[in-house]
Amino acid sequence: MSEEVQNRLQQEVEKFRTVQKDYQKALQQRQQLDAQLNENTAVKQELDLLKSDADVYKLIGPVLIKQDLEEAKQNVAKRMDFIRNELKRTDDFIATLDKKQDTHREALNKLQQQFAQTQLKAS
């Protein structure tokens, strides 16, 4: 009996750890996206400040290519939309992982209590 509970406890701990790892990864991804969004917002602000005849270049590989200001603005706006969508997706993912973590934690607590009881009985 005690061995069975111990096995289940171990399995549950294992599962909990994997979820925790996923959670960390998702959190990191979220941070990265946030940083990207910030950078793009700053670029957009700077582009919006420019006069319509200003020169804009884009770095492609090792060379700078001259680009149309409007096109550049649209490009950045598109990228920001994309990043926002990704952010939302990761946020949802984090929320589900959060719930998963909670259920695992509860299950762990229960199993731990069971384990303690069986040990008490055994002694």
Partner: peptide, 20 residues
């Protein structure tokens, strides 16, 4: 020419660049 991030560069006059 100033790097404003995400691979975009803009050309500014000296005063504009200082301001930036």
């Amino acid at each position: 020419i100033i790097d404003i991030g995400t691979g975009y560069y803009i050309s500014k006059d000296i005063d504009g660049a200082k301001e930036y």
